[in-house]
Design a protein around this nucleic acid. Structure first.
Lengths: 403, 403
DNA sequence: CAAACTTTTTTAAATTTTTAAAAAGATTAC
DNA sequence: GTAATCTTTTTAAAAATTTAAAAAAGTTTG
């Protein structure tokens, strides 16, 4: 049995890199899994026999024999991704080529009101409606705010499940493998494999949403810190004697620059009689401010610019400590990236050693609103080694019983 | 020849872990190099044949056959370590058990006046006086402030060597392998292998000296960032409209909390007639303030406390981003660690999410003033793979010529 | 003090992995 | 059109590495 384990690791690695690349040659795979070409070919042939992989014709060559291309067969398995944010949840299902194969659904559900049973019901409904056989689903990736231990499968901040872990509870109910991860970390995973952080070993991914999150990629891997709390970017103390934050401290970045903070400032200003097209809205929400800012409303632009400047101040600090190759703005609010960029860049220029600022690229994600859902799928793919391992263990148990 | 390379890697790894541990069993070595026990024993026997390693009797056992212990033979090779700081340089020589085998010498030499030829002459003199044959010296580790590329062997801030790199220039002159590294990074290396960061995968090492440096250990490895500038801790913007820093910005931590800043504040206060035992000194230097603070002089204590509080503020930010297991205070000024600790801890408590502060241990180095010198030696040991590789390459060239 | 249990060391066989050479397929230049 | 070049694939042999069992050397317990 132990001989299976090393083979398993290589097979899992090959599946992963094929998921992230859709077509690769034997030599590519050899590089990804760090083994010789004959070895890589052996692995690929095994995966073909097992039905995961298919030969996909020849790629072009710069002079020499054309390399045979290998791909995952898209419809062998599917991945369900669940993206939870402060005010709604989204569910999607992706095939083995990382393509959404059913419409993404969105439910308005406040995180603080959300119950695990609620969530499970929505996921079950979605899977049924998709028409995809449950046996073909590799796993469910759930990504959400909170302090999360992905190994233990617990969210310490939300969705407490009393005597069992959230992951165990959901696995039991859904009869499917479940994995959980923090939303900002998931977005970083998505950017790393399919977005602006591809081929980057040191990237900081800012999750511009109702809060301000940070996912860190260090030495090509997601960095979580010693107890999983690294990247608490939004609670960096910024303003002396600032507003009280829900974390218990005063003047955190989050109290000044999150969408929620911007909304509350907008309401204050309007109440004080400030002229703005926002006054025409019954309730001012994030979309209202974003829309009016795009249209040129002075107050909306001012509020976003001020928030962005504060974010830039904190980014300057982050750059001094981490010296990243790139900072990526992702998450819900990144779609209006242009509005944030100028004041952020200005704050960085003012507060950073010039050499450091010059070495750091700032970009807006091209994954748009889907970064978190994609990250949830990546989360499942990254766990494929574990999934295959569990399957083999189960098979071995059956064998033991039959003997 | 290629078969030598993989053997070489394992031999180098074995030598490294023996340097860091002074006596290990075959099973320990097997764990360190990540190979099976029979393989580890093979490596050890090779190293015994080559004269590096010796069997060192048996260790005790908790029930079972006693393990044979292996050690490096101390006097086969030596390492020269050169620690350069703002105002003086120190030179030491260590054996293969990481023990100083000659007195450490110290020269008062301002970094800005220092020339490479100067430095080389001092190193040559020191080696001659030590009486150790140059052929037995594995290499010279030079550690100093500045923005350093250890791979290219260049210090971009100090000791410019025009058309050649500092490392090439020194190697030519000394006829010995030379390695350079930033002082704070070297201190982190020293702490990682012999100090408070042993067995810690996520540690931040603060270099309390004339400036305030930071060496980062992330996932068990020194973290340098994308372009080698990570850990620019002392230039975190702290004070709004603060003093001008030599980096070009205003209000950096360094302008408020470094020993140099403290000295200048002390002079100001004394000039303004502030009562203090410091007034009895002709020139107030770091030692004066440290000594008087220890004796209880109010002004000295106040100055150090204020600086420490500012350092604590920045540490709170660092903790939010990195979530380290431990923060270690090392470097010259760490010997008066007790004086710093209370205000630092207070600032952290005030500015950190409680859960994060609780998970972070703060300790004072027990390597005292020698962390940088030890780090310089570690730097050479870490490069042993390269050294052995060069040796084999040279041998192969000779063989080619003879054939 | 002998039996039972632990741990380390040795050995030989099995397995994994790589290397290197040969074969095959494709491009380029003359 | 063909020789020269280049790259990928296949193959078989060689090398590296691990596994597992046996042997050796202790410790503990009743």
């Amino acid at each position: 049995m132990s001989q299976n384990i090393s083979a398993l690791v290589n097979n899992a690695k090959a599946i992963k890199c094929l998921y992230y690349n859709e077509a690769l040659s034997s030599s590519d795979i050899s590089n990804y899994i760090g083994k010789s070409i004959p070895h890589a070919i052996k692995v690929l042939n095994e995966l073909i026999k097992e039905g995961y992989v298919i030969e996909k014709g020849y790629a072009s060559s710069s002079g020499g024999r054309k390399p045979l291309q290998y791909s995952l067969i898209p419809d062998t398995h599917y991945i369900v991704s669940v993206a939870i944010s402060q005010f709604y949840i989204q569910i999607g299902i992706l095939d083995m080529n990382n393509r959404f194969v059913a419409d993404i659904v969105q439910h308005e559900l406040e995180l603080y009101d959300l119950k695990a049973d609620n969530l499970i019901a929505e996921i079950e409904k979605y899977i049924t409606q998709s028409g995809i056989n449950s046996s073909k689903i590799l796993g469910v990736g759930v990504t959400m705010p909170g302090f999360i231990d992905p190994v233990k499968g617990i969210n310490y901040t939300h969705l407490d499940c009393k005597d069992t872990s959230l992951v165990d509870y959901m696995q039991q109910a859904l009869s499917l493998p479940v994995f959980i991860e923090n939303d900002s970390t998931a977005i970083a995973l998505g950017e790393q494999k399919f977005g602006a952080a591809m081929y980057q070993d040191d990237a900081m991914v800012i999750n511009l949403g109702w809060g301000i999150g940070l996912g860190m990629i260090v030495n090509g891997e997601i960095f979580r810190g010693h107890s999983g709390l690294a990247g608490e970017f939004s609670h960096i103390p910024l303003i002396k004697n600032g507003k009280l934050c829900k974390c218990g401290k005063h003047g955190c970045l989050e109290t000044e620059a999150s969408l929620i903070a911007i909304i509350s400032k907008a309401n204050e200003e309007i109440a004080q009689g400030q002229r703005s097209s926002l006054a025409n809205y019954e309730t001012i929400d994030a979309d209202a401010i974003i829309n009016e800012a795009v249209k040129g409303d002075m107050l909306s632009v001012k509020l976003i610019s001020e928030a962005a400047y504060h974010i830039g101040q904190c980014l300057a600090i982050l750059i001094h400590i981490m010296n990243p190759a790139i900072i990526i703005f992702s998450g819900k609010a990144s779609v209006i990236g242009r509005l944030w960029m100028a004041p952020i860049q200005q704050a960085i220029n003012e507060h950073c050693i010039p050499r450091l600022a010059a070495y750091t690229e700032l970009v807006i994600s091209n994954l748009n609103a889907n970064a978190q859902l994609i990250g949830g799928a990546v989360l499942v793919v990254e766990s494929i080694g574990k999934l295959l391992g569990d399957k083999i263990e189960a098979l071995n148990k059956e064998l033991d019983i039959n003997q």
